[in-house]
Amino acid sequence: TTVVVGNKKYTFDNPEAAEKFAKKVAKKLGATVHKTNGTFKVK
């Protein structure tokens, strides 16, 4: 599962961990999490 934050990509074996990370980053940046085909995008 990939999490994309700006131009950085983070890969997780565990989708739950990926989602948690994405939400944490989004909260910090005041952004939102978008899920597309198993990829979480923070923007």
Score class of each variant (00 low, 15 high):
K9S: 13
A31K: 03
A26C: 02
Y10P: 00
T32I: 09
K9L: 10
K8M: 11
D13Y: 11
A17W: 10
T32C: 07
T32E: 08
K24N: 10
L29H: 06
K41Q: 15
K23S: 09
A31S: 06
V4F: 13
K41D: 15
A26P: 01
T1G: 10
K23D: 13
K43N: 13
G38Q: 05
T11R: 13
E16Y: 13
K41F: 15
N7K: 12
A31Q: 05
K24M: 14
V25M: 09
K9W: 11
T32L: 06
V4T: 08
K28Y: 07
T39Y: 13
T39W: 07
E16N: 12
E19D: 05
K23A: 09
K27Q: 11
V33Q: 01
T36Y: 12
H34S: 10
T2G: 05
N37Y: 05
T39G: 15
H34E: 15
F12Y: 04
V4W: 14
V5W: 05
K35S: 08
K28P: 03
K23F: 15
T39I: 15
K23L: 14
A18G: 06
T11G: 06
K9G: 06
K35P: 04
K23P: 00
T11Q: 12
L29M: 11
T2W: 12
A18C: 02
K27H: 11
G6I: 07
A22F: 02
K28T: 08
V4I: 14
N7P: 08
G38D: 08
T36A: 10
E16T: 13
F21A: 02
Y10H: 04
K8N: 09
T1Y: 14
T39C: 07
T11V: 13
K8H: 12
V33K: 01
T36Q: 14
F40S: 03
A17C: 06
K43R: 10
F12P: 00
V42T: 02
T1I: 10
F21E: 01
K9F: 12
T11N: 11
V5C: 05
K8R: 11
T32H: 07
T11M: 13
F12G: 00
D13H: 12
T39F: 12
K27R: 09
V5M: 05
D13R: 12
A26G: 04
K43P: 07
K20A: 13
A31T: 07
P15C: 06
V4D: 05
K24S: 10
H34Y: 13
K27L: 12
E19A: 07
K20P: 02
K23R: 10
V4Q: 11
A22G: 02
A22N: 00
K35V: 13
P15F: 12
A22T: 02
T11A: 08
T2P: 06
T36N: 09
L29E: 03
L29W: 08
T32M: 07
V25W: 09
A31I: 04
D13E: 11
K8E: 06
V33P: 02
E19Y: 14
K20M: 12
A31E: 04
E19I: 08
E19R: 07
G38V: 03
K43M: 15
E19F: 13
F40G: 03
G6R: 06
A26T: 01
K35T: 07
K41I: 15
A31L: 14
E16A: 13
K20L: 11
V25S: 03
T1H: 09
D13Q: 11
T2I: 14
F12E: 00
A17I: 13
A26H: 01
A18I: 00
K43I: 15
G30I: 03
A18L: 02
F40H: 05
P15W: 09
T39R: 06
V3E: 00
N14P: 03
V5A: 03
P15Y: 14
K24P: 00
V42N: 02
F40I: 15
F40W: 14
F21S: 00
Y10M: 04
A31F: 09
V3H: 00
V5H: 03
G6T: 04
L29I: 11
K9E: 10
A31H: 06
K24W: 15
A17G: 06
P15M: 12
K43E: 15
T2N: 10
K41M: 15
N7R: 12
N14A: 07
H34Q: 13
V3G: 00
T2C: 07
A26L: 02
H34P: 01
G30H: 07
K20N: 12
V5K: 01
K43H: 14
A22H: 01
N14D: 13
K41A: 14
G30M: 05
G30T: 03
A26N: 01
